[in-house]
Design a protein around this nucleic acid. Sequence first.
DNA 1: GGAGTGTATCACATGTTATGATACACCCAT
DNA 2: ATGGGTGTATCATAACATGTGATACACTCC
Lengths: 131, 131
Amino acid sequence: MEERRVGSLRFRIDFSQPIYEQIVQQFQSSVVKGEIERGTKIPSVRELAQALHVTPNTVMHAYQEMERSGLTETRRGQGTFITSSQEQIEQLRSKLAAVAVREFLQKMNDLGYSGQAIFRLIQDEERDETP
Amino acid sequence: MEERRVGSLRFRIDFSQPIYEQIVQQFQSSVVKGEIERGTKIPSVRELAQALHVTPNTVMHAYQEMERSGLTETRRGQGTFITSSQEQIEQLRSKLAAVAVREFLQKMNDLGYSGQAIFRLIQDEERDETP
DNA sequence: GGAGTGTATCACATGTTATGATACACCCAT
DNA sequence: ATGGGTGTATCATAACATGTGATACACTCC
């Protein structure tokens, strides 16, 4: 699927994963990297749905997940906003990172890698990515 | 779900993931860690199905994935065997590890972590796991 | 030939994901 | 107060993945 724009946001959606998950991840990423300021109003359910060529229900699903995780605050009748709490954002970021690390180490362990061997693989990969 | 034994193998299956995926992963892990020798015959589709309280079709699905990935060789009428090629096993192990590393780094990057920060998180996590 | 293998193909059920449509509830500016 | 823009709830429908249960076939070895 091509890249879709809505306001200053850019979305790239494909079919390898649930669409609502991708929406959540792309907001998470943008917020955590500081590309969206805290407190910002994000597109309405209907607006984003139209921009992404997707049903409002799908966007709704994503927005509900984002509120549950504390990434956004929704004000009925007004819209959905990125949380204004820097602490909330940091907390979410740390939590997501911790989960990712834990799952990764578990997987590597299952494959029989540990300690230095893991670091070496990461360094190799980073060397490939950023030569 | 409790732990199930069949021969010298131990299986722990839950419902958080597709059953056939878990079967594949547990064979991968056992082989890669050397807990199953190469060339070994693994349980028949029906036998493992009975042991895990699962349909033969589900086990079949797992076994077909394992053959596609090169982990096993199936001989019709005889059974399914762990590949006897050490090289094949090493290759699979490296490939799975590379995929895991790549996905992990991508995820961490989306969260705004890179380089040393990632190493720090891993070390923290390992410290927690093995004090 | 029979027992034990893998393989193929049904029908069926369930849960997730997504669509499409409709209606309601709330807030704010006019 | 009314209207337009919000989020929310609910329905029917569909496609797909996963798993069950059953049956039949093909192959290998004793």
